[in-house]
Write a protein that binds this DNA or RNA. Structure first.
Lengths: 129, 129
DNA sequence: CCGTATCCACCGGGATACTG
DNA sequence: CAGTATCCCGGTGGATACGG
């Protein structure tokens, strides 16, 4: 099985496993620890900053801000600020962001389905023989 | 929207966004930089260590070994060693590993489809206005 | 050929403190 | 409320050298 690198590989039938391949860069981005969870937390609808922070247990303010900025830059979320006091900012998935939900959902489901198997495998592997 | 940990709607387990949630741990694992590529590189069939190293451009020996060990521990790949000189080791996806290909493929396809959009969005975002 | 061991630079990311 | 700014520690991962 040979896939091309986002179809922009110099050599036809090029390898998606090439360094610096744009596809790999995107994979890195959406594969990061928090992006997946933010997409899930944004789910369907709009959420304020503090709401997201509450939903995603364990995320720091810094990482939430940073992740949202990256996602905004990548066109995955929109940021709407209401100039009132106190400030109110709302985040929302764009169409592109929404379209990510499917693939990520599939991954989450895989995790759920195979959780038991993985944990068992780990115990077996860790058995001192 | 409240989703429960392990996706089981309404109840035991709690929120998937909770710290230490097993689902999150698995997500972290398969979401890592190299696992995705190893699954792809193993594709359909068996591959030797050096073969994988060649296919996945940019991976270091250390990281390939480490990733394969983790995957073996998680029950995603099998490792077969042939005691000959020079040594020969072959890796192969387990059924569980194979079942990961679908979800990951979906992610890769998303990347390819949205690559252009993301790069454009980035340029717009980076415009000094 | 297929690793393991060691050293080390880098940076992701938490804690904390401060603004509009 | 929703950030920005700083400091700083620990882990990730590359480079290199050696072993079965």
């Amino acid at each position: 099985m040979v896939t091309t690198c986002a179809g922009v590989s110099a050599a036809p039938g090029g390898d998606p496993y090439q360094q610096g391949c744009p596809t790999r860069r995107i994979l890195d981005r959406i594969g990061d620890r928090w992006t997946v969870l933010v997409v899930g937390a944004l789910g369907d609808g709009t959420a304020r900053f503090s709401e997201l922070k509450r939903r995603i247990e364990g995320i720091s303010q810094k990482m939430l801000t940073q992740t949202l900025r990256e996602m905004e830059r990548d066109g995955l979320v929109t940021r709407t600020m209401y100039a009132q006091v106190p400030v109110r900012v709302e985040y929302q998935l764009t169409d592109a962001g929404m379209s990510l939900r499917g693939p990520l959902k599939a991954l989450e489901e895989w995790s759920i389905e195979h959780l038991g198997m993985v944990m068992t495998a780990q115990q077996v592997y860790d058995q001192p023989s």
